[in-house]
Design a protein around this nucleic acid. Structure first.
Lengths: 177, 177
DNA sequence: GACCGTAGTGGAGAGTTCTCCACTTATCAA
DNA sequence: TTGATAAGTGGAGAACTCTCCACTACGGTC
């Protein structure tokens, strides 16, 4: 990769980070202008808005993913899953566009490739529960991420119903004797 | 309302119905052109794409709503809820844009006003279950519609995981002794 | 240092959403 | 029948997304 290209890529990411921090609905054009590049350059580096959003919040998401082992060490699996999910939904709500980007990729190939880490985190949480026999055997991490999208949408509405919905989902995940 | 205005309104609806039947991603401009009206007229009648979509599929949705009493007469509440939901998700998948429109309105005031019927149908199904003590008391119809949105997204992916997700949700809805 | 192939660029352009307001016209009272 | 008038119209316009390709300039080679 050419040095100037890498420079542009970095400038775009920096500009996007600033712009998203200021306000959620920033146009791709605005990001490009702010970074001092043409629209073409922006789109070559980040082909979709989602790709850009995921790149911007990569660190935040990584932190969430890395927190999993500690959670599992401290709490029973279902409690760990509950508090992790609350944090995830919270991040989706605070970081504009992240909820859309994450739940859009839940059942796509893209998710496996670029956002495997999140799926990996959910897998670890579910498997811990399965090992203890408290989570049903057919629980699927992509399904859970998709449901998390619904949670986030509910949390963003006028009346936050996400706690109740989360309890319902966890209840549905629980293994029955 | 002026007669010519009503005429235009009807022509727009007819044009939209045709256009949506042909293909899901039709631009608002195309609908306007097809109906022979200006963009302004289209937007005055249907302020958002969602509003137009809901108007176009009103009958389909009404049929779904009206089917509830028969379902409840034939089957136990949870089975009725299951089969009704399968039909709803199926409609969301076949009728382009309906899934987005419905799940977007799940927790908004708009839903109560213009799509109360769907909420009403879900309420009837849930209450039947509650009366028999098989559905948890704190189940909320808007939450359920929101979860249905996730189901639809999952059903539209490469691998249809919606049956498993539906079982999980129904399991979560079940009242525990 | 000069050369050249190719990776990389920017912005014009086609298409979109949605708003605004100068104009047109249906309707009702006289 | 005829105005008056408020309801209704259309399309120009501003801003957007995303693509395409004529150009520019980086960096390995001599």
């Amino acid at each position: 990769m050419r040095a100037d290209a890498r420079d542009n890529r970095d400038r775009i990411l920096a500009a996007a980070r600033e712009a998203f921090a200021d306000d959620g609905d920033v146009s791709m054009n605005q990001v490009a202008r702010r970074a001092g590049v043409g629209a073409g350059t922006l789109y070559r580096n980040y082909p979709t808005r989602e790709a850009l959003v995921l790149a911007v919040y990569r660190q935040e998401v990584e932190q969430l993913v890395e927190a999993v082992p500690a959670l599992l060490a401290e709490q029973p699996p279902l409690d760990a899953l509950r508090s992790w999910t609350v944090d995830l939904v919270d991040a989706m709500r605070r970081k504009h566009g992240l909820g859309d980007a994450l739940s859009a990729t839940a059942h796509q190939a893209m998710a496996e490739q670029s956002y495997g880490p999140v799926i990996g985190a959910i897998t670890a949480l579910l498997e811990a529960g399965q090992r203890e026999g408290v989570v049903r055997a057919d629980a699927d991490p992509r399904d859970f991420l998709q449901l998390t999208g619904a949670l986030w949408r509910a949390a963003s509405g006028p009346e936050d119903r996400s706690p109740q919905m989360l309890e319902l989902i966890l209840d549905g995940l629980t293994a029955r004797p």
